[in-house]
Amino acid sequence: MNMSIQMQDLGVDHLPSVDHAEHHEHDAGKRTVLGFWIYLMSDCLIFASLFATFAVLVGNTAGGQTGKELFDLPCVAGETLLLLLSSFTFGIAHIAMQRQQRGSTVGWLIATFVIGLGFIAMEVHEFAGLIAEGAGPSRSAFLSAYFTLVGTHGLHVTAGLIWLTVMIHQTLRFGLDGMVLRRLACLSLFWHFLDLVWICVFTFVYLREAI
């Protein structure tokens, strides 16, 4: 990184080496994003084992309420809509950042943050409601698996929100330079990935239970 800046400072005389340095940085950016993708795939395996655990334990309600009695589908549809909308706003932010529009990028990232926060608020409200009903994670194996699976997704979204605030700050502070773009590209993958996991959550946890 520093190398390439120094080499650029040398100016036009050294054009071939500048190109060379940029090429290297470009490759490094691609490698970072690929490495982050591999991390996401390992995260996928964590979720896969949590889904498998949930599927095994879903019938073990220990005489308590089943998902059909507990889950509020309109509320889940609202959460789904919010997360999908935040994926859309991040997609727009991604385009703005590729066009080097700093203000627009920050605007759409803030929109994504607010909508993501709405999702977390709805989820916390839903969890609090369940616990108040006496259907907390210690009630049955089914509920333990449910809270672990959906809670892990919620924690990921919360981590994404923290990362979003950091990136909004960095975009304002440093502008859309190579480093910030690379980090935003990784965050973009992370955010869309969480929406993918949520598709599996609403299908295999909420809707399947409601059948």
Partner: peptide
Amino acid sequence: MANADSNHASIGAVVAGF
């Protein structure tokens, strides 16, 4: 410098996906 990732998204793709 402008592309840390090589996948250039377009508005069309984002709207279609959404």
